[in-house]
Structures are given as structure tokens and as C-alpha cells.
Simulated scan of single mutants.
Amino acid sequence: MKSEIKKIAVLTSGGDAPGMNAAIRAVVRSCAYHNLECVGVYRGYEGLIEGDFKTLNARSVKNLINRGGTFLKSARSKGFMTKEGRKKAYEHLKKNSIDALVVIGGDGTFTGAIVFNEEHNFPIVGLPGTIDNDINGTDNTIGYDTALNTVVEAIDKIRDTANSHNRLFLVEVMGRDAGDIALNAGIGAGAEEILIPEQDMGRERLVASLKRSKASGKSSSIVVVAEGDQIGKNIFGLAEYIRENLEEYECKVTVLGHIQRGGSPSCYDRVLASRLGVGAVDALLNGERDVMIGLVHNKVVIVDFKESLKGENKIDKDLIRVADIISV
């Protein structure tokens, strides 16, 4: 071991994701395995500023692996966006003799960690916890698989109504900047069309495609729309455009919203979170800092924070082709 780290803090920040509790559990129990102290920080970076800490041990995290959300709570912190706020956070860490920090969250969480490290040279390791799957350097983020399954289950139920009434349903899913949920759930649920921010389909082309579907004998259709898609002002405006140009269908809108964040994590997310949590503690003990722990080709990897945030989301073009072929 290269480090003299004896005490590690862990927090969750940004939007909650299924599997965050499993990740916290893995960090805490990995600390116990290595005879390290572990401290939970409540309410993310806001709790770091206020010193809202609680000592955790292996028994503190029992019965957590199957729970959605995050028992440490999460919050957006305007205070941590200021130099004064970050200084208070650093002072609380030093006052409590904390040697390193594990943060679980998405791009906003990692951006805050980068700035904090630059100002205070404090060891931080991140775990990618976001349902959007929009972090580079890892094949999947914690919570993404569960969100996918939630969306597919919901669309399956919506399709029953669509088929019963010969309706067209527009189903909006999360993904402000990334279409991973929409694309994969759309394929998995058999959607006729999938609209994602990485690909501008255009309203006219969408209507033309739906007309072809109707002419081919389809009596109902499901269109999955990522919330960040720019095809219209919003999904309700898109629905109105379709109603004006496609009288063959009765058009309805369903916004799945925050049900995608909740629920018990899938087995995949529980295992992923456990592997990454153990990997975070291992990395800190080996002298790593300012990095994210990810999973690539089923191998745990270490990625520089800045690399994890670099570039736009890269959508799988093969999946787009698959979606086009099987929606005929």
C-alpha cells in the first residue's frame, strides 16, 4: 500500500440513482476490511460544508443493498460553488481527521470534485452514479440498468392501452443531454420511433415514418422521446404537430419523469456498485486521487476525472441502425 490513509468519507451528490446505497455499502465495508475508519456525509456537498458527518461501520449499512435512493441523502449545493463554501468543507474534513473522500454522482459532482482538489489538494475518488449513463470512461453508470428496466416495464404497460384503442403514444424518458435510456429502452420495448438529442430526426420525417407504419398495417405506435431531444419545443408541442399532420392516430403523451430514478436496483447495478465501491477504496490506498472508478469490458478501470467529463456523449450508431431495421 502506498498511502497512509486511515479515515475515508463518502457522500452522494446530484440526482439519486438506484444502486447508490449499494455503492455506499461497498465503500463502508471495504474500509472495515482494511481496518480504516469510514464517515458518511449527509446531503452531499452541502453536508460537507456544514460538517454533517456520521461514523459508519459494517453494521451501519446492513439491509441497504436492495434499497433505491441514497440513505445519505443528496442535495444541490450552491454553497459548494463558491470558494468560501469549499474552504469550509475542507476545514470540516481536516477538523475530523478525514484523509480522503469518495463521491458518488454524475458530471456536476465530478466537476465540483475537480475544483476542490485543485484548490486544496485533497484526495478524492469518484464513482459514476447517474441513470443517464453520460459519463465517459465506463461502459455503464450506477443506476442506468435499473432505469432502463423501469422504462421498459412502463412502456410495455402503455402499449397494452395503445393496442386496445389504436393510439399513438409519445413517451418521454430522462436524458437531457444523452439518449442512452431512450435508445436502449426503445429497442427493448419495441418502439416504432426513438428520438434522441444526438440525432435530429425532424418533425416531417417523423410524421412520414408514422404514416408508413400505418400504411404497413400497424394499428398503434409507441414513440420514445428523450427529454433533451430538439425536434420540438417540448413533447406536448410535438404531439400537437402530429395531431395536425396525422389524423390516422389519436395521439397521447406520457412523461415518465422521476419514476425512472426510484425502485430497488437491479442485480447488475448492485454488482456494479459493489465492484466500484471496493475499487474506490483500493485506489485511494494505492495513492490514486482525482480519478473516477469505472468498468470497461467487465474490468474495473481508473480514469482521470477530466477524462470522464471530456467530449459529448457518444451514442452507439450500431444501435441506431438496429432500431431502424426492426421498426419496419
Score class of each variant (00 low, 15 high):
E288R: 07
N35P: 01
D318F: 12
L256I: 10
L319N: 13
K317C: 06
S213A: 15
G202H: 02
L238P: 06
A323P: 10
P128A: 15
R289V: 00
E172Y: 02
A58S: 14
L56N: 12
A22Q: 04
A189P: 01
A191E: 09
I235A: 10
G217P: 15
A9P: 01
K310A: 09
D290F: 07
V223Q: 13
E248N: 01
V328G: 11
V173W: 03
S97I: 09
V291M: 02
D156I: 03
I242P: 08
D132G: 09
C31I: 07
Y45S: 13
E118Q: 13
M174N: 05
R159G: 00
R270L: 01
F110H: 09
M81H: 11
V10H: 06
D229R: 07
A147H: 06
I320L: 07
L56E: 11
A147W: 02
G105M: 11
V152F: 04
A9F: 05
L284W: 02
V281T: 07
E240T: 08
A113E: 11
K233I: 08
S264D: 05
E288S: 01
T12I: 10
I235Y: 14
K73V: 07
G137S: 06
L309P: 09
I135R: 02
D177N: 15
H120Q: 13
T146H: 06
R67E: 15
N149E: 13
G202N: 00
G14A: 02
V328T: 14
N140D: 09
F53H: 12
D145H: 12
D229T: 13
A323S: 15
K233R: 11
A17R: 12
D134C: 01
I98S: 02
F169D: 05
N35C: 07
S74D: 02
G47H: 03
F116V: 12
N57H: 10
G68R: 10
G262K: 05
E227R: 08
I315A: 03
F169M: 03
V173R: 00
S30T: 15
A75P: 00
R29M: 12
V253E: 11
P123R: 12
G232I: 01
R43C: 06
T150M: 05
V61L: 09
A239K: 06
S97P: 05
V301W: 04
V281D: 10
G47F: 04
C267F: 12
V303W: 03
V322T: 10
G137M: 03
S220E: 06
I259K: 02
G279E: 08
R76A: 03
F169N: 01
A32P: 00
Y45N: 12
Q230Y: 07
G287C: 08
T111Q: 15
F236W: 11
M81K: 12
E37T: 12
R67T: 08
C38E: 02
V225K: 06
